[in-house]
Design a protein around this nucleic acid. Structure first.
Lengths: 327, 327
DNA sequence: CTGAAAGCGCTAACAA
DNA sequence: TTGTTAGCGCTTTCAG
């Protein structure tokens, strides 16, 4: 592999000049530039990013931490991140934490090792202490997840409001016994969505019991199915179910299909996120659209500003109710 | 950020010794080692991968090229790649080509720039000429896709055989008019699956007309739905459909649901790949299981061997028919 | 077992 | 407009 030295020699100029045509072409005389470019072509030269990175002490790499890449919700955010990162001349390192602290730790080392210039984290299970500590040394943005105490930059949506609106929608449709499929309440978003759900119920004087909430250990299809099975067994006469994630809702829907319960006639069901697959179910799923792509895209914007040392403000994006045939 | 120099100074040793405790701890005296480790801890030192990479002229990064990250088939392969790469001390750079040559080109430059030590490509639309040329200079492994001419290393399954077996299974179930939802026949796998399908039909003396094959422009849910709509319009009395991809099959299944056609009673349908969602449809989809995770994992194995300069052999993995309720 | 020193490929300050 | 040169942080040979 030819180096900048080889090019310089071949073109009969110094390495500085070669570097200039690479980075500041306007500062070198046209004729010299052409000589250099010709040499580059003949040698099939490509600059080594390794050398450049060391010299600039940057890696032009962004760390993206997600719990599980197979979760379509995160995936869509990652697409937004990738696109915008690329535009800014950054590549992304997508890492799955599997919600394990050890893994997380390994990946955060990539920051400490200068292999990434900054990180976007989406893992709600993250070790907050460590994260806050880390954020003091390195540019970090939280995406979708966030903290109440404002020590970390974030971009998210208003989960409480969205849940409130969706529950209200179900109530307005006449449903009075609405179950909820929540995820673990150690997650802030789970607590917020529950609050929104409760606020709407209260506003409509609808019945509620704490055990109408099914708490899914994981946000998966299987858990959703299990949730619906469990809910149906209680024979509480629910007519609607509000799930805090599309994956859970799709699982629940499948169980309803299996048991021959007609949706939405006998049971309405709504999800959250608007992943692509909500469009593929039968019937299609009513859900809350999160602007995932945009969220990823803006997260990059924020992170890069942070890397440059600029101040940034937290962002709360708009959501939207998507009413389809499942309700 | 402290450097190896800082550590050396603090510990009262040379940088070489610090480097040794980092890379060859056994070659340094216990007491010196402890001194150095203490210094490292006090300074909260982490070695810069940037410096190491330049010195070693390697990036310990693997390029992974896929058409679209949202395609669950590729995603599962990527999981296999990631896991195994990590085990070998490599990180992966997942890049979406969107099946566009320009994109592909940009990403392949990461090899030329030494930002990746090798690449695993899964894009069937790739510019073969360029790929072959590139593979002469850089370690590259094709995954899932492959060439007839043996100029590129690959790992894949026997598509022809799988398609043959699946079609045969449908025939044995008594189906005599079987439509096929194929993808663009510019792809080798599409041609092979068609051949397998035809071979089975011939063996059973089943009817066939060229226009029983729907050629999907993209391997997407929407195309699958469109395919089924189109097939149903022909009123050819099909009783089964063989789709070359689960995404297509799931789309087709949705259309059957919409039209109120009972599956499998009025129409049997089978997919290909065994992505997770085939488990979530109602009814669950009969399909051909590809060992995607394993494929990714072995691809890494092959690539790393190649990087090390070892000889490798191409691999054809076993598949498996998964018979479920859709047939 | 340890240290001195060269050098990986590049950029940028300084000089000419 | 161009060249000389130092140095980014690390590993590794060679001497001691």
């Amino acid at each position: 592999m030819p180096t900048i030295q080889d090019v310089a020699k071949k073109a009969g100029v110094s390495v500085a000049t070669v570097s200039r045509v690479l980075n500041n072409p306007s500062t070198v005389k046209k004729i010299t530039k052409q000589k250099v470019q010709k040499a580059m072509e003949e040698l099939d030269y490509s600059p080594s990013i390794l050398g450049r990175n060391l010299r600039n002490s940057e890696s032009r790499m962004l760390l993206v931490l997600i719990p599980k890449i197979s979760n379509p919700f995160y995936l869509r955010i990652v697409e937004g991140i990738e696109e915008n990162a690329l535009e800014h001349g950054y590549n992304i390192l997508v890492c799955q934490t599997h919600s394990k602290t050890e893994r997380e730790s390994v990946y955060f080392d990539l920051l400490r090792n200068r292999l990434a210039d900054g990180a976007i984290t989406m893992d709600p299970t993250i070790d907050k202490e460590k994260l806050i500590h880390l954020a003091k040394q390195f540019p970090i943005v939280q995406c979708s997840e966030y903290d109440k105490d404002k020590s970390l930059s974030y971009i998210t949506i208003d989960s409480e409001l969205a849940a409130y609106q969706m529950t209200k929608f179900l109530l307005k449709q006449g449903h009075r016994r609405i179950a909820m499929v929540n995820s673990d309440e150690k997650f802030l978003y789970a607590r917020e969505r529950k609050n929104g759900y409760l606020r709407a119920l209260k506003e409509f004087d609808a019945a509620f019991e704490e055990n109408w909430i099914y708490r899914a250990a994981n946000v998966t299809f299987e858990e959703g199915q299990q949730a619906m099975r469990s809910l149906l067994n209680r024979e509480e006469g629910f007519t609607a179910v509000f799930a805090v994630s599309d994956m859970l809702a799709i699982g629940a829907l499948k169980e309803l299909n299996i048991q021959g319960i007609s949706v939405p006639d006998e049971m309405a069901i709504s999800g959250f996120d608007k992943i692509d697959f909500t469009n593929m179910t039968f019937p299609r799923l009513t859900t809350v659209a999160q602007p995932m792509y945009k969220m990823g895209s803006i997260a990059v914007e924020m992170l890069i500003k942070k890397i440059r040392g600029e101040k940034i403000e937290d962002v709360i994006l708009d959501h939207e109710l998507i009413i389809r045939e499942s309700t």
